[in-house]
Simulated assay, not measured.
Amino acid sequence: MITVDARGFACPEPVIRTKKALDVAGTDEVVEVLVDNEISLANVSKFGNDAGAKVTTKKVGDGHFRVLLELGESRSSQKETDQRTIAVIDSETMGEGSEELGKVLMKGFVYALSQLDVLPDKVLFYNGGAKLTCTGSDSLEDLQYMEGEGVEIMTCGTCLDFFKLKEELSVGQVTNMYSIVEAMNSADHIMKP
């Protein structure tokens, strides 16, 4: 049995830790995941079901849960493709309603993006998204990791100029709108938070 203690971690960390455990688990092995909130319980359970595992959950204390993922022969696995995927990020926040929550969600999105089995070919940043590639961004470590793995990180130069951030660019390279449009046009898949 492999035990993953994901207590105290916010989304998407419990799912990412679960995924890493499933990746190394053998056929017919059990992965035990410990979580401390119902959102993580639901997310890990859904991920396990999607991965083809038999999922059993149990409440083990006040707000604490145990998720057992039993793997079998029919377990699904993600296959690498030769299709070009890019991610486009046009804001330093994700969604609408709360700017503070939006920043937390965007940080989680960039982190989750960096943990995919198959990373995107490029990540394009424009408008407010350009701020994520600059000094002080909470996402720099994840972006630098992806760049080190061969992902092209490209930030709109006009946007950096507009926000007076050209000297603050800390990851990737400056690009232009034609290159952004060309990259989007040649992509097989475009991911956008």
Rank of each mutant, 00 (worst) to 15 (best):
M1S: 12
T3V: 14
R7W: 11
G8D: 06
G8F: 09
A10F: 04
T18L: 12
K20F: 06
K20N: 10
L22Q: 01
V24H: 12
G26C: 00
V30A: 11
E32H: 14
V35N: 06
E38D: 15
A42W: 10
S45F: 12
G48T: 10
G48D: 08
D50A: 13
A53H: 08
A53S: 13
T57F: 01
H64C: 06
F65C: 03
F65E: 01
V67G: 10
L68P: 00
L71C: 02
E73K: 14
S77E: 12
K79R: 12
K79D: 04
K79M: 08
K79E: 09
T81Y: 04
T81S: 13
D82M: 13
Q83R: 14
T85A: 12
T85D: 01
S91Y: 12
T93G: 14
G95H: 08
E96N: 14
G97C: 09
S98P: 06
L101I: 15
V104K: 15
V104P: 00
L105K: 10
M106S: 03
V110P: 00
A112V: 02
A112M: 07
S114T: 03
V118A: 13
P120K: 03
P120F: 02
P120M: 02
P120N: 05
K122I: 03
L124K: 02
G128T: 08
K131G: 00
K131T: 13
T135C: 02
S137F: 02
Q144S: 14
Y145R: 14
E147W: 05
G150I: 12
G150V: 11
V151I: 03
V151F: 06
V151L: 05
I153E: 05
M154V: 10
T155S: 11
C156Q: 05
C156P: 05
G157T: 15
T158I: 08
L160E: 02
L160H: 05
F163P: 05
K164H: 14
K166W: 00
E167D: 15
E168G: 02
L169M: 09
T175R: 01
T175N: 01
M177Q: 06
V181H: 03
E182G: 13
M184N: 07
S186I: 08
H189L: 08
M191V: 14
K192L: 08
K192I: 12
P193C: 07
